[in-house]
Design a binder for these strands. Structure first.
Lengths: 215, 215
DNA sequence: TAGATTGTTAATCGATTAACAATC
DNA sequence: TAGATTGTTAATCGATTAACAATC
């Protein structure tokens, strides 16, 4: 991370995890180096775009050689902030909440679920992949005492903003929202609204176009 | 849908579900009409962009009045292809698969899960929200016999492409992929790769920026 | 060194915003 | 009719691609 004077566009940031994912696959295959041209044909962005994107953050390559796969993977990880651990809580122990707990468990990433919160007394006290399901009433105290970084919202859209407000009050620095509503946060709390069903609608659009074209 | 001569950019298509979601909320609140200016302050796009976006598909408004909320909601639904029913199958009865079945059950949308497919004998024969879990071996026959439109991939990334190939062979017209890999399909099969964890990486990026800024 | 490939500037392309004439 | 607001063209802005000098 050498430069970073100008603001990086969101389009660039959205591409970084994809670069990282491909680099990780190469790394696991034992590939040492890659040129922007080789990477281009693999990942589907132009070589020019790849070099342009990376040079927003620094000169990670070497002229005449290319990029070190391992090195670039680590650089991008650091840029994304993935070189540290994030403590998270999940609100809502339904299937989606469970799926997320399970995912972090399965992939063993730097994102660790420390607690799950629920209002349903049936679920409180149980445990999901070794993580305790607790009463939603105690969430503020838990977030404060455990230095939780991220709140994951897996509730209905009706209570999502309320839950978000409480999590922000308790001191999280980021929210990952799966409720179908746009969560608002104070400017110091980052938020990512996922909107899974909107991607299904986009799929439906492309499917009807494909059908229309045949006529 | 009057025009549609030129190709619509993906940026526009991604905004359509969001327009629709906000219109649905207005509709439920009993709001009859909305101007592009009012809509702008609600949804956070410029009035100009809203008008520009909509006029890709037709003149849905009325000068001096605005847009009919109900009318525009229906138009956008039709553009997205949401005025019909989609039959779907889920592959993988883990937590994510369950969450999706539950979601379509809960929201009663036009997307109906007709079957769930698994390789784990422990799960085959069970039922999730009234949908039977079947042996993955029988998926091609099922898709053919039940005119399935969409395959939902909730498997590991190792088998995801293989599952995709089989679904395409069986005749689905769209794939909704949750495995962390980019699924390839023949051009007549639409595909939406979700990549949930990439949105978490983007969140991490914004969180580290916020922290850096404080320094 | 010569060849390869980056880093970076310049050119192009596309998407967003502004402006305003058309019209309800 | 006058006022409001769309539909649409023109201007601007930003992102992508192309080109090439720098350099390993």
């Amino acid at each position: 991370m050498k430069k970073q004077q100008t603001k990086i566009s969101n389009a660039v940031i959205r591409r970084l995890p994809r670069y990282r994912r491909y680099l990780n696959e190469l790394r696991k295959k034992g590939v040492d180096k890659i040129s922007s041209n080789e990477f281009s044909s693999l990942i589907g962005y132009t070589a020019s775009q790849i070099r342009q994107d990376l040079n927003n953050f620094g000169g990670f390559g070497q002229q005449g050689y290319g990029y070190s796969v391992e090195g670039l993977y680590n650089e991008i990880s650091a840029i994304l902030g993935l070189d540290r651990e994030y403590k998270m809580v999940v609100v809502g122990a339904g299937n989606l909440g469970k799926a997320i707990v399970n995912h972090t468990y399965y992939y063993k990433t730097g994102f660790v679920v420390k607690g799950i919160f629920e209002v349903d007394p049936e679920l409180i006290g149980k445990s999901i992949n070794g993580v305790e399901v607790m009463d939603y009433e105690g969430i503020v105290e838990f977030v404060e005492n455990n230095n939780i970084d991220i709140g994951i919202i897996c509730t209905t859209k009706e209570v999502a903003q309320e839950v978000a407000d409480r999590l922000c009050f308790a001191g999280v620095r980021g929210l990952w929202n799966f409720a179908p509503i746009d969560i608002e946060t104070p400017s110091h709390v980052a938020v990512e609204n996922v909107h899974i069903s909107e991607s299904l609608h986009s799929l439906a659009y492309h499917m009807s176009r494909a059908t229309d074209d045949k006529k």
